[in-house]
Design a protein around this nucleic acid. Structure first.
Length: 999
RNA sequence: GCCGAUGUGGCGGAACUGGCAGACGCGCUGGAUUCAAAAUCCAGUGUCAGCAAUGACGUGUGGGUUCGAGUCCCACCAUCGGCACCA
């Protein structure tokens, strides 16, 4: 007899083909809207979905429901790796698919696209090894991914598919780069955007950049250079993170613990000319505009942290030496005010604690600071030079983690503290970074941990100027909190916050300082030296000797895309010289109409470029006139629900918000934020493993001895690989995988059955090739079917939670689908399936109606709140109850199939067809519930004595308090316990509970 | 160190606004069916005591608020994730 598990493959293939052939999930919105660059296109209603047959089936009960409401549901852009799909992918994809299928059934217009983030290193690394062109590898990987996704029955509109590597796509990535290049940030511009909100600061066309008189007088080349310095996309020569192993430089966001995020390779600091994007200009808006988004608080916090806005003051310290004395300098500042740039005789510092100015006992410059030469005296010159040399070659990792303790040298120079005229020594030290603030600090060891450590090491004076609230003396041991000022002249006695505000204002009026804001965020290093990325639409002008003049030209927008040149040799250059410098001459060089020789920019864009705006292109993927039709943009954007892993918290999600804001400022999009709601799916770990640890010569040693994990600590073996070692002796413990039979639970931990004193590890590990615990979705689909995989991924637990895989769990949901099948289907013989004789056209009983409507209510509420695991539980309860009924009314079974369909669409379509329907259920109306069927005739009321459950009484629904109390007192156990006691108080929660407080 | 999240049976997890802790699933135990097995079905399953009715204990730990706390408040512990000389 054919059973559900024998039918799965046939059913799933059948409906996948059906959806494909009928283009069930295609949304054709604005096929015939003329494309235009004009932003004033009237808003057009979305055309009716082609497959809509919404008029049939159960009536929609919600009259306020807008049938034309749009819903843009997006999965994070996958990188099509050679390894194929991982079970982590279908987790988020199933969740969004359920939301989409549910929303369609509720009459919404759903945009649910899929495509490929296909540029990137792996395909190029493969090319280096095998000579296969990255385009070939990429196409093959995309094919695998697509086949796998299709096998899971996701309702994507595949007609919108594209890859970032398609020249028709990267044409517009380059076009957006030109927008960035054409934009400068006017931080004082006040304006109101199309969203009706007022903002300060706007990205404006470079042509609107005011040119200072002295610049325009210096000629057109000077003007061009001045503009280039102010663009959002600019070139800069500075030490960058060069990763020799990857053959490219990396952005700060791509460095984790001083190593490359991808592959964990070492990174060196090398000075190089690079392209940067001025994301820092948008720091405030990127931080503040997070507030209104429906995102996890943790991601918002991570982004705010990464941006790291701090408020403080810039203060000038006088260095002397021009003949002007300190007093005269101060007087001149009082009349002229704070200067735009610090002069040669001044040292400008940034501090968040201007209230500690009276506690300054030394100052520190970053080793790279330009004032070092000016300050260094003859006798210290040698030591300073040596220190600078050493600092320059140190990697960031050496400068932080590994360096225990601080280093630095005295320059011999002094600066004068503007608040009290004291002379303070100036040092250089690598704990001050040239790239933050002004690259110079005032050191207050009494109130800054780092300064304290440094001062102790070099025996520098520690001068407390803040005391804890309620105390009158400070400490030289360090006090880093806010408090009350002491030893601070006229300011003494002021609380920290007041002090800060007052002294900042005073410094400002004296021309000695000003309020300042700084960010931890750095400008985004945007160029890479690899082949497989978007070329820049930029040319460098060459002089008569073929050397770049530093002046730039862009490719005209109409000429895009700048295609990647054909290359056969993918061997890395081994130096920071980009791969494209080996491109054919005809690609590399050109002569402009005015006769100027030009050389192409040979860097390529990072992988993040393509994924920065793909969600925009999905709305209008085939437009060859514009990157996105403004009318369509208004129709579909922003993304209503975005689901993906948390690993993109500060990379993709920050970068794309930045691009979106630039496009917003330049009038190309009408929303300030791209992603309204963000949900992070939790990682899926491998199956739970039990690990014991042994001492001895490996796992085969007969004399091996188990050690309790209680006696172990984290350590490293001889080769420096992380492992566990015995806390007392330092011996290396060898992990051994144990089976469930060997284990027992005792108290809070798991122990060995045979050696109860040995505690073992019980945990699920991240899936990894090396651990061998990777679950391949293809295998699961083959064994249980796509519906079971989808259902299990949703049933495991809350979407956001990290959770371990369990094959037994998949079997469980597969059994459930088998029960659903048997609830509806009879199989009289091998080749035939027909409706079960239990499914009849009869009215449902009140009990059946109650079960059905309770299920509709719960499942609807759960899907709306993305509580898929509980929705599935409710459907399991329905099936458990309905299998017990010998007669299963069709009018109860049909809505159930509709409820199940977003979760397990293949079996649901098949059952729907067996129930006599001829069209896909994808656009049937979602069932609605009626409270009147939920009313019970009898209710069970728990009875408590002093808040403890002591019994239950069953009373007719709607009984009043007196009736219930009487019934409660009559109940045998309660009556017994009430004997000889007085009821002091009765708490009654209508229809829910009675609590007698007794003495 | 700082920021964030999470701690509930043997396991994954439920419990909407303070009101029956452990829904649903896995596993386990017993039974039915079967020559046997798979599959399926039925019953049981937080811990301890008891033949049972029932009682005591129980949501990381300690305290508090309340008639009543997994849920609210305070302090702490553990695990996971992020950041880490950013002045």
């Amino acid at each position: 007899m054919p059973r559900y598990d024998d039918e799965v493959k046939r059913i799933e293939a059948k409906w996948q083909a059906y959806w494909d052939q009928n283009q069930t999930f295609r949304v054709d919105v604005l096929d015939r809207i003329p494309d235009t660059n004009c932003a004033n296109v009237p808003q057009l209603p979305i055309a009716v979905q082609r497959n809509s047959h919404r008029e049939s089936g159960i009536a929609t009960q919600n009259p306020s429901f807008d049938a034309h409401e749009k819903m843009y549901v997006l999965d994070m852009f996958p990188y099509p790796s050679g390894a194929g799909l991982h079970v982590g992918h279908p987790e988020g994809y199933t969740a969004t698919d359920i939301v989409c299928r549910f929303s369609r059934m509720r009459g919404k217009q759903v945009l649910h696209p899929m495509g490929w983030d296909a540029f990137g290193l792996p395909a190029e690394d493969y090319a280096i090894k095998t000579g296969t062109h990255p385009a070939v590898t990429t196409a093959k990987n995309i094919e695998t991914f697509k086949r796998q996704l299709k096998s899971l029955g996701f309702s994507y509109d595949w007609s919108r598919e594209f890859a970032t590597t398609d020249p028709e796509y990267y044409r517009w990535t380059q076009w957006i780069f030109l927008q960035l290049f054409d934009t400068w940030y006017d931080s004082t511009y006040v304006w109101t955007g199309p969203d009706g909100k007022s903002r300060t600061g706007k990205g404006r066309p470079i042509a609107e950049l005011p040119i200072p008189e002295e610049v325009s007088q210096a000629g057109s080349a000077a003007v061009r250079r001045y503009q280039d310095q102010h663009r959002l996309a600019y070139q800069h020569e500075a030490p960058v993170n060069w990763c020799p192993e990857l053959g490219t430089v990396l952005a700060n966001e791509e460095i984790v613990d001083g190593k490359s995020e991808r592959g964990g390779h070492p990174v060196e600091r090398v000075p190089l000319r690079q392209w940067l994007l001025r994301i820092t200009a948008y720091g405030d808006r990127l931080a503040n505009e997070l507030d209104d988004l429906h995102w996890p608080e943790s991601i918002k916090a991570m982004q705010k942290n990464w941006i790291g806005r701090s408020e403080g003051a810039e203060v000038d310290f006088y260095l002397g030496g021009t003949g002007l004395g300190y007093e005269q300098w101060k007087a001149s500042r009082a009349s002229s005010g704070f200067s735009r740039e610090p002069g040669a005789d001044e040292l400008r510092i940034y501090t968040t604690r201007p209230d500690t100015l009276f506690g300054v006992t030394y100052m520190v410059l970053a080793p790279e600071h330009p004032a070092v030469n000016r300050l260094t005296t003859m006798e210290h010159k040698e030591a300073v030079e040596a220190y600078r040399q050493q600092a320059a070659t140190k990697s960031d990792l050496d400068r932080t983690d590994l360096a225990k303790g601080k280093s630095g040298v005295f320059t011999g120079g002094y600066a004068i503290n503007p608040v009290n005229g004291e002379r303070v020594p100036v040092w250089i030290a690598d704990y001050v970074l040239i790239s933050y603030g002004t690259g110079a600090i005032m050191a207050v060891p009494a109130h800054d941990e780092r300064d304290l450590e440094f001062a102790k090491q070099f025996q520098i004076e520690i001068k407390p100027v803040v005391a804890p609230v309620g105390e009158s003396t400070g400490t030289t041991e360090g006090f880093f909190d806010y408090g009350v000022a002491i030893n601070s002249g006229a300011y003494s006695g002021l609380p920290t916050l007041e002090f800060k505000a007052k002294i900042t204002a005073d410094l400002e009026s004296g021309g000695l300082g000003r309020k300042a804001v700084n960010y931890r965020l750095r400008d985004w290093l945007f160029s890479r030296q690899r082949y497989w990325g978007e070329p820049f639409p930029i040319w460098h002008e060459l002089d008569a000797n073929g050397q770049p003049t530093g002046l730039l030209r862009t490719d005209p927008a109409e000429s895009l895309p700048v295609r990647l040149p054909e290359m056969a040799d993918f061997k890395p250059t081994g130096t920071p010289e980009p791969m494209l410098s080996k491109a054919p001459t005809e690609w590399l060089y050109a002569t402009a109409p005015d006769g100027t020789r030009l050389k192409r920019e040979t860097n390529t864009m990072p992988q993040w470029a393509g994924s920065c705006w793909y969600y925009l292109r999905f709305a209008d993927p085939r437009n060859d006139q514009h990157f996105l039709n403004p009318a369509i943009e208004k129709q579909w954007l922003p993304v209503d629900l975005y689901v993906g892993g948390a690993e993109h918290a500060v990379l993709h999600l920050l970068y794309s918000r930045f691009w979106h804001k630039v496009l917003f400022d330049r009038g190309h999009v009408s929303t300030a934020e791209p992603f309204q709601r963000l949900v992070n799916q939790g990682m899926i770990l491998g199956e739970v493993e039990f690990t014991g640890y042994v001492l001895g010569n490996g796992t085969d040693d007969p004399n091996r001895q188990f050690v309790s994990v209680r006696d172990l600590k984290a350590g490293v073996d001889e080769e420096g690989v992380a492992t566990r070692i015995v806390e007392k002796t330092g011996e290396v413990a060898i992990p051994v995988t144990l089976s469930v039979e060997q284990i027992e639970k005792k108290g809070d931990s798991f122990i060995l059955k045979e050696h109860p004193e040995i505690v073992v590890d019980s945990r699920a590990h991240k899936m990894s090739k090396s651990r061998g615990n990777v679950i391949n979705p293809d295998v699961v689909v083959d064994q249980f079917g796509a519906d079971s995989l989808r259902l299990y991924e949703m049933f495991m637990g809350p979407l956001e939670a990290v959770k371990p895989w369990s094959m037994k769990g998949v079997e469980g949901v597969a059994r459930f689908l088998g029960r659903v099948w048997r609830m509806i289907v009879d199989e009289p013989n091998e080749s035939q399936t027909q409706l079960s004789s239990a499914v009849q056209d009869v009215p449902p009983t009140p009990a059946q109606l109650r079960v059905l409507h309770r299920t509709i209510k719960a499942v609807t509420r759960d899907v709306e709140s993305l509580g898929f695991n509980t929705a599935i539980s409710r459907m399991m309860e329905f099936v458990n109850e309905f299998l017990a009924f010998d007669v299963r009314p069709k009018s109860a079974i049909e809505p159930f199939v509709l409820l199940l369909s977003p979760f397990a669409p293949h079996i649901s379509e098949e059952l729907w067809e067996l129930l006599g329907h001829t069209k896909s259920l994808a656009y049937e109306s979602w069932p609605t519930f009626d409270e009147k069927y939920l009313v019970e005739t009898e209710i069970e009321v728990p009875i408590q004595l002093n808040g403890k459950l002591r019994g239950k009484v069953t009373v007719p629904a709607g009984s009043d308090q007196a009736t219930i109390e009487a019934a409660a007192k009559a109940e045998a156990t309660i009556a017994g316990q009430l004997e000889g006691k007085t009821i002091v108080k009765t708490v009654y929660i209508p229809g829910k509970m009675v609590n007698f407080v007794v003495k």
